[in-house]
Structures are given as structure tokens and as C-alpha cells.
Design a protein around this nucleic acid. Structure first.
Length: 724
DNA sequence: CCCGTGGACGCCCCA
DNA sequence: CGTCCACGGG
């Protein structure tokens, strides 16, 4: 597309889409059904603003749902208008707030290099607070308290206001913890995810100079996935667009699925009330799915009462019917999916065009077992993440402390890693000293002799502090990757892992190497980036950002329905479509089935050609075997264009060629299992030769074969031999 | 101060 | 069925 010629790109749009691109002034609400080309609209609109309206790149703020989406959008715009696109603000809510807050932090008394605490860090602080307040953690469950605080922040209710509204003893405790929690974070120069929004709003509200600066700078604001905004985000947008009022929001009320983190569907349903002269543009033509899939999804969602009437249609024909399948239990479910994947490959599908979605992360395990056994490459989005692994968190904690020594949570984490004789007792004494003197833990470390420690402990603390001090001085001048290597080396972290001589330790070392690799990539992509910006980027990483796209050969993608949002696949399998799982028991109890139904709608509309929904009659959950009824969502499907089948034990036990063996008849383990290490060249019976990339403690090896495909194989069973 | 063991408990989805 | 945490011996 050439931007000198609006005619060329406008011709690629349908009437409604074109309208959305050309209506640049004033508030615009685009109701974009699933697969209706909203990314195209957003991209072209930005390009149009730059090329035809003459807007400067830094006057545009585009909010996307994930960093990955932001990156893709930036690429597409750059392809159209060139390097100018780099100056556009294309960010998620959290990263945009991170940036604004860094610029304005000092007005609130924070330093610009504040640390962002993740869920685990936040919980740890809540626990500390409960301890300090001497409340019974049985009665006041940290997780529950934290949820209350988080909800309050999403509603922009600060600690003082919360305290003034207390209605019960429980509330009073929450209020006390909230106040203390906030003070703790402040003293650590740290913020949590919710603070990014709440504090940004606070700074804009309290400081007119700040507000004027930012509302002036963003002449055009675009927001994707508007149906998932919460009150804080809503207020932020109001503040930022007060001057120019050029706000375009794009969303689909039927895809609002983040109620649990404060998303308020009314933001989109009542947008027209908030902005009187709103131009509403519905996009109903779908370019993704066949009509069988769309009709099925339309039927299901029409059972919701609280919605805007909308009906998607497509020109892609009826296609294959939607399949609803009953299986015996979760193992049969997994085997069936694995068998179907094999069939799809024969039909010419590639693994990367196939996704399996489910309600809860725990559901992936059974399927993973089967896929590993079959040697099917897959990736799990979400679940235990790279950055949540202990060794990566340790490395990150070191970096956090180097960037922000006041960060007490990170400092506590690394104080005794590797073991160096700084135990909980010593740390508690130091923390008490710090609290007593009103200084940070880091400063207390420097005056350890006043903390009344045993001689050995004092020595250990002093030597730890000296190491950190010297790292603080020397890493200043280094790039991020070099700093990480230096930290791991000089703290003895690497040495300690190597001394373990276990496969686990080896895996951890490999993960750390990968982490250094991440840092190198970051340096290459951001030549002017520093430690602070690297850490911020990592803290705001989302599950979808880890999605590996069209890598050669590819892999099947496994993920929760929430993580599937915004993605599309030629074939989609939806697991566990059963009462109690989907809709989840808790949603039924809390009368929130409409949100679950929207989630079902989201899942179904991910599929382009083939959609299979499965339910098992029996399923073990928490070690107990339960009988589940088919989900009510299955009852809501139309009869036309839907095929219902029941897989009887006899038919699934021998299902497909590769799946023929049931789990009780696995081939006998090989007698000679080759000893492999990463980098070895190996030969596989059917897959050819490849290189060992990674070895997991449970005997799973990852091999990259000559055709570029990566596979995870069970060393015990896979016909693998070492060739060099 | 470290590590192993047994008991309690879980009860989603996420940046 | 797993995980996480508290507790007690070495």
C-alpha cells in the first residue's frame, strides 16, 4: 500500500471499515464483531492520519491488548509509512502508564526507576503486612485480601477512601493492610500492576500541569478491545482525551471476558452516553470463519440478555459442520485430539494452524502427556512462565536491586541465593532495624553491626553487601546482557548451580543462558535501552507475547480461552465443555454465566474452518472422579450445521494409527538409553537427524530436526541415537 | 541454618 | 492428585 495514494488502501476496505478510517474527528465507537478486520481498520486509520491528515507520529496514542499486537501493528504501519512509525505511541494500557508514570513519578514522591511487582511479589508483601498487623492468616487469607485491594485500585479507590467506607471487621483489616501495603511499596520504590493505572490517573488529576502536557500531546487516541477496560482505564482515557476529543474505541461487547479483573462492560455499552456526538460504526462482515461456525457462535451468544444485537455473516460458505463430541474421560479426550491432529496433518494442515483451548490451565497436562508421547511439537501459552521460574526470578531480582536498591522484596529474595549464610533470622533483624530507623532494608544492610547479629551472620551480610556494592559500581557501564553475566558470575550463582551436578541444575543453567539471550535481543532491538527500560518491558510481558508464530513446521498451540483472545486458527479444539468446568462452578454460583458464554463465543470464533467441542462423561478433578453433564452451551447450539457424535470406548481405544496404543500398553522402555547432552547430533527412526536443544529433568529432550521443526521427545521411548 | 517430611488445602481466568 | 507451607531433627 502506498500512502501517497489513499485511494489504493481505501479500496481494500468495505464501506463500514472505510467509514471508520475516514471519520478521524470526534468520538467514534466501532462495534467490531470477531474477525471483522478491526486490526486492519486500526492500522489503516493510523496510516491515514499520518499520510492524509498530516498528524505527527508522536501525536497518536494507540492502545492495544498485548505487546505482541502492538509490535505487529507498528510493523504494518512502518511498512506503509516508513520509519516515522517508530515515534507513534503504540502500547498496552500498562506500558503506556508505565511510561507516563516514569516521567511524572517524582510528583508523587516515587523515583523514575520504580520496580513493578508481579503477583508473587504482591502476595509476599500482603503476607508481611498481615504478620506485622498480627492478623490470623487463616481468617484473613492473603490472596483474598489482595483481591480486595486490587479491586479497589481498579475502581480508583485509594487507601484513605477505602478506610472511610469500611463496613465490617473484615473490611477494616483490608483497609489496614491496604494502607500498610501501599506504604511498603512506596518505601521500596515499587508499584504493582494496578498502581500503574491508579497512580497515573492520580498524577493527572492532582497536577494540572501534568494533565495539560499529556492531553495536549495526544491529538488522536485509539483503543482496541475497549470492552475489557476497567474504571481506571476509562478515567484515564477521559483525562487524556478531554482536550482534543478524538477518541476512537474498538470493541465487541460479546467478547468482554475480564470482569474478574474489573473490566466493566458498561464502558462500551454506554459509550454513546458519555460522548454525546459519537459516531457508531458496526462491523458485521466476518472474514475469518465459515458460516457453520459463525451461526453456531451467533446462536450461543444470543442467549445473553445484556447485549447489543449483532449478527455476523461471512462470504466463506458453510464449510465443515461444527463437531460436538462426547468422550469417556479426559484421557480419551486427549487421545482423540492427538489422533485428529494427525489426520489434519494428512489433510495438509500445519501444526501452527491448530489450537487447543480450555477453561483452566490445569487441563493442559493430560493432553501434553499424550502429545509428548506422540512426538507432536506443541507450545503452551500461559501456565508456568519463563519469567516465573525460580532461577529467572533470582536473576531478575538481582537486576532489580541493581536498578533500584530500595526494592526490599527483591533484596530479600536474593540475600541468600546462592546460600551464603544470610538466613531469615538475620534478614528479620535487619528489616526490624530498617523499620526502626525509618530507612530502607538496603541501608540497614550497610549498618548491619547495629542489628545485633551473630558474628558469622554479620560477616555473611557484610560480604553480601560488598558484592552488591561492587556490582552496583561496575554494572553501570555495561549492557544488560553483560550485566546479567557479571551478576551470575560474581555472586557465585553459576558456580553453585554447577556444583549441584544434577539435571535440574543443568536445565536452570540453560534457562539462564536463554535469559542472557533475551537480553542480547533486547539490546539489539533497543540500542539506547538501559537496565530500567529492560526490566520494565519484562515486567509487562504477557502470555500472548510469548506466542511463537509461523516458525517452520510450527507447533500446536495450547492455551486457555482467555489467552486465545484475538488469535485465529484454521482448526480449533475446545476441551472440557462441561457443566462445572465451562461454565465454571464458581461462575454458576455467582450468577456470572453470561461472561462464561461470552468466553465460549470468543473460543468458537477463533476457528476459521474446523471447530470441535468436546465433553467427557467422567473426569478426575483434584484426584476425585466426577460425572459431568454436557455444558449448557452445547444445548444452545443450532441443530443445523452441527454434528453430534459419541465416541464409544471400542472406537477410541484403537483410534487412529499413531494413537493405537492405550496408555496401559506403552511400548517397553528401551534397554539402552543414550546419554545425551545439549548440542549433540542425534538420529531419530522416522524423523531423521537433528540437534539436541534442551534436556528436561524428566527425560524429555527437545530436538531440532533438519527440516527446522522442533520436537519434544521422551528419551525413554523415542528411537533416538547419538551420532556424534 | 538447612533440609526433609507430613499435613492441609485447593476452588479458575490475567497484565 | 499436586503443591505449598509449617515444623522438627541434624
Amino acid at each position: 500500500m502506498s500512502l501517497a495514494e489513499p485511494g489504493t488502501y481505501l479500496a481494500e476496505l468495505n464501506d463500514a471499515q472505510r467509514d471508520a478510517v475516514l471519520t478521524t474527528e470526534g468520538p467514534v465507537l466501532v462495534i467490531a464483531g470477531a474477525g471483522s478486520g478491526k486490526t486492519r481498520v486500526l492500522t489503516y486509520r493510523v496510516a491515514h492520519l499520518l499520510a492524509a491528515v498530516g498528524v505527527k507520529p508522536n501525536e497518536i496514542l494507540a492502545i492495544t491488548f498485548t505487546n505482541k499486537a502492538a509490535g505487529e501493528m507498528r510493523e504494518r504501519i512502518e511498512a506503509a509509512v516508513g520509519p516515522r512509525a517508530r515515534a507513534i505511541w503504540i502500547l498496552t494500557f500498562h506500558s503506556a502508564c508505565g511510561r507516563i508514570l516514569r516521567a511524572e513519578a517524582e510528583r508523587l514522591g516515587y523515583k523514575p526507576n520504580f520496580t513493578i511487582y508481579d503477583q508473587a511479589d504482591q502476595l509476599r508483601v500482603v503476607k508481611q503486612c498481615l504478620e506485622e498487623l498480627e492478623r490470623d492468616p487463616k481468617r484473613f487469607v492473603p490472596r483474598g485480601i489482595h483481591t480486595q485491594i486490587s479491586n479497589a485500585k481498579n475502581q480508583l479507590i485509594g487507601p484513605d477512601e477505602y478506610a472511610s467506607r469500611v463496613g465490617s471487621f473484615y473490611d477494616q483489616t483490608v483497609a489496614d493492610v491496604y494502607a500498610l501495603y501501599q506504604r511498603r511499596l512506596f518505601n521500596s520504590n515499587a508499584v504493582d500492576f494496578d498502581d500503574l493505572l491508579m497512580l497515573t490517573v492520580e498524577v493527572l488529576k492532582r497536577f494540572p500541569e501534568a494533565r495539560e502536557k499529556w492531553e495536549k500531546s495526544f491529538r488522536y487516541v485509539l483503543v482496541d478491545e475497549y470492552q475489557d477496560t476497567n474504571h481506571a482505564q476509562y478515567t484515564l482515557l477521559q483525562l487524556l482525551t478531554a482536550k482534543h476529543r478524538n477518541l476512537m474505541v474498538v470493541g465487541d461487547p460479546d467478547q468482554s471476558v475480564y470482569g474478574f479483573r474489573g473490566a466493566d462492560i458498561r464502558n462500551i455499552l454506554e459509550f454513546e452516553k458519555d460522548y454525546k456526538d459519537t459516531r457508531v460504526i458496526p462491523l458485521e462482515q466476518n472474514y475469518r470463519s465459515t458460516n457453520s461456525i459463525l451461526n453456531a457462535a451467533n446462536e450461543v451468544i444470543s442467549n445473553n440478555r445484556d447485549r447489543m444485537e449483532k449478527r455476523l455473516w461471512s462470504e466463506l460458505g458453510d464449510g465443515e459442520p461444527v463437531r460436538v463430541l462426547e468422550v469417556e474421560d479426559e484421557h480419551a479426550e486427549a487421545r482423540f485430539v492427538a489422533g485428529e491432529i494427525a489426520l489434519l496433518l494428512e489433510l495438509g494442515y500445519s501444526l501452527s494452524e491448530i489450537a487447543v483451548v480450555y477453561r483452566t490451565n490445569a487441563q493442559s497436562r493430560v493432553l501434553e502427556d499424550v502429545l509428548v508421547r506422540q512426538g507432536v511439537a506443541y507450545q503452551v501459552i500461559g501456565g508456568p512462565r519463563f519469567y516465573e521460574r525460580a532461577e529467572i526470578k533470582d536473576a531478575l531480582a538481582y537486576l532489580q536491586v541493581l536498578d533500584n536498591p530500595f526494592d526490599a522484596v527483591s533484596l530479600t529474595r536474593i540475600a541468600n541465593r546462592p546460600k551464603r549464610g544470610v538466613g531469615d533470622t538475620s534478614l528479620a533483624r535487619l528489616q526490624a532495624l530498617a523499620d526502626g530507623m525509618g530507612v530502607s532494608l538496603w541501608e540497614a544492610l550497610g549498618r548491619a553491626e547495629e542489628a545485633g547479629l551473630a558474628t558469622a551472620s554479620l560477616k555473611a551480610v557484610t560480604s553480601f553487601r560488598n558484592v552488591m556494592q561492587s556490582l552496583l559500581a561496575t554494572t553501570q557501564e555495561m549492557g544488560v546482557s553483560e550485566a546479567i553475566e557479571s551478576v551470575l558470575e560474581r555472586t557465585g550463582y553459576i558456580e553453585a548451580l554447577e556444583a549441584e551436578r544434577t539435571i535440574e541444575a543443568r536445565g536452570r543453567l540453560e534457562n539462564l543462558e536463554e535469559f542472557v539471550g533475551v537480553a542480547r535481543e533486547y539490546e539489539a532491538a533497543n540500542p539506547q535501552g538501559n537496565l530500567s527500560s529492560f526490566l520494565q518491558e519484562i515486567s509487562l510481558f504477557s502470555a500472548q507475547d510469548a506466542l511463537r508464530g509461523e516458525e517452520s513446521g510450527g507447533m500446536v498451540t495450547l492455551m486457555t480461552l482467555h489467552n486465545a483472545k484475538g488469535l485465529e486458527f484454521r482448526a480449533v479444539f475446545m476441551l472440557g465443555v462441561e457443566e462445572g468446568i465451562f461454565p465454571h462452578t464458581r461462575s454458576i454460583e455467582e450468577n456470572d454465566v453470561e461472561e462464561e458464554r461470552r468466553l465460549c463465543y470468543v473460543g468458537m470464533t477463533r476457528a476459521m474452518e474446523r471447530l470441535t467441542m468436546l465433553h467427557a462423561t467422567r473426569r478426575s478433578l483434584y484426584g476425585r472422579s466426577e460425572m459431568n453433564l454436557p455444558s449448557r452451551f452445547l444445548d444452545e447450539l443450532p441443530s443445523e450445521g452441527v454434528e453430534r457424535e459419541r465416541l464409544r470406548p471400542t472406537s477410541w481405544q484403537n483410534y487412529g494409527q499413531t494413537v493405537a496404543r492405550s496408555e496401559y500398553q506403552a511400548p517397553p522402555p528401551r534397554t539402552e538409553i543414550p546419554t545425551l547432552s545439549t548440542g549433540d547430533t542425534v538420529r531419530h527412526g522416522t524423523l531423521g537427524t537433528g540437534i539436541v536443544l534442551r534436556i528436561e529433568p524428566d527425560g524429555v529432550v527437545t530436538v531440532r530436526f533438519e527440516d527446522g521443526s522442533e520436537r519434544r521427545l521422551m528419551l525413554e521411548y523415542a528411537p533416538l541415537d547419538r551420532v556424534s
